[in-house]
């Protein structure tokens, strides 16, 4: 059946493409190409540093998540009748550490009729509100809710050790994931500062099979890092049409920065090892870059490279909190541009 469908798709695409005729002006391509070569040879190209410094403390630095572009139906916590169906799965999220939260705890119950009930309770355990949403909306992508602060509630398979919200804006303030008692699922809750949930793109989590998963169900290639006290996993998230190089440290810290298409995203994220004594800086090299080398500014620093989904990532470890404190420059050979030196200032 799938093969038949594949053949049908091939035929449709071929038929559509067959009607296309070459309309490219080859002389214009050559003229534009010669002009590009002349311009490049006449001047050194100073490229503004697109320093993508991911927030310092690395708690949730640089990362957060987003619900399909603000997509799923938002749920405002308002009083409503309590659930009458039999509770199959219930977990409780502690909100006492969440600034601005209206409740001390949020109880989440998945019932047999495919409904997710949410109850906010105060410190004494009294229920202050109850509301519900069809479970179909509470997928791995999550649903926006309001607990006094914006939040995203979602369900992911299995019992992941961590959950990582990915956002194109402000990172999540808190994230928690708890296994439901039955059903092989876990619920996660990410809270945000005002407006933050609207830039939530999705979440990532580790599967029991050792793979990393993202909320569209796909499993991005990942590479583990064990270097100079830094341990964790690199992978590219691809959510909401945004590709990011992401690092999740075993210590729970994480960062990410956008790595669109062929564009080189030069700098850098910083992190600390679990002992808090060594910092880490990361540079993502362009496609097909070869011969990477690092000119270290910090005599105690050290560096390595690793491949992540076909891209080369340079990892520098040292004592400085900044890339400039550790590195003078990174050089490599670019497939298109030849030798390139990225100076760090």
């Amino acid at each position: 059946m799938t093969n038949e469908l594949e053949e049908q798709v091939r035929e449709e695409l071929a038929t559509s493409a067959h009607g296309w005729t070459d309309r490219i002006d080859h002389d214009r391509v050559l003229a534009d190409g010669r002009r590009a070569l002349r311009q490049r040879s006449l001047r050194r190209v100073a490229v503004a540093a697109a320093a993508a410094v991911v927030a310092g403390a690395l708690g949730w630095a640089g990362l957060a998540g987003a619900l399909g572009r603000g997509a799923m139906p938002g749920v405002v916590a308002t009083p409503s009748p309590a659930p009458s169906t039999v509770a199959m799965n219930r977990v409780t999220f502690d909100l006492t550490g969440v600034n601005g939260a209206d409740y001390a705890r949020l109880e989440v119950t998945l019932t047999t009729d495919g409904t997710v009930w949410m109850s906010g309770t105060d410190a004494s355990g009294d229920v202050r509100f109850t509301t519900s949403i069809a479970a179909v909306y509470v997928t791995a992508h999550g649903a926006t809710i309001d607990v006094g602060v914006p939040a995203v509630l979602g369900l992911v398979p299995g019992d992941p050790r961590w959950i990582l919200p990915v956002t194109s804006g402000t990172a999540a303030v808190t994230t928690d994931v708890r296994k439901l008692p039955s059903g092989g699922q876990s619920a996660y809750l990410a809270t945000f500062s005002s407006g933050g949930a609207s830039q939530f793109d999705g979440v990532c989590w580790p599967g029991a099979d050792g793979e990393v998963y993202q909320s569209d169900g796909s499993s991005p290639a990942h590479t583990d890092l064990d270097f100079d006290g830094h341990r964790g996993t690199f992978f590219f998230t691809d959510l909401n049409d945004r590709t990011r190089l992401t690092f999740h440290a075993d210590s729970g810290n994480s960062f990410s920065f956008e790595a669109n298409g062929s564009r080189y995203r030069p700098y850098f994220a910083s992190a600390h090892d679990s002992a808090g004594t060594r910092s880490m800086a990361v540079a993502l090299l362009p496609w097909n870059a070869t011969d990477p080398a690092v000119d270290l500014a910090d005599a105690s620093a050290t560096w390595t490279t690793l491949g992540v989904a076909g891209r080369t990532v340079v990892v520098v470890s040292g004592t400085s909190d900044t890339m400039a404190g550790m590195v003078r420059s990174i050089s490599y050979t670019d497939e298109a541009d030849g030798p390139v030196v990225q100076r760090v200032r």
Binding site: H26, V29, R34, R43, V344
Partner: peptide, 29 residues
Amino acid sequence: MGETREAPMFRSSPTRDAEFAEFMRTASL
């Protein structure tokens, strides 16, 4: 932070143009 690309020198050549024109003839469609 900043960066400076050290761009190598290139010159177009009749050979490059001829090779590339042939490539375009077969590839652009």
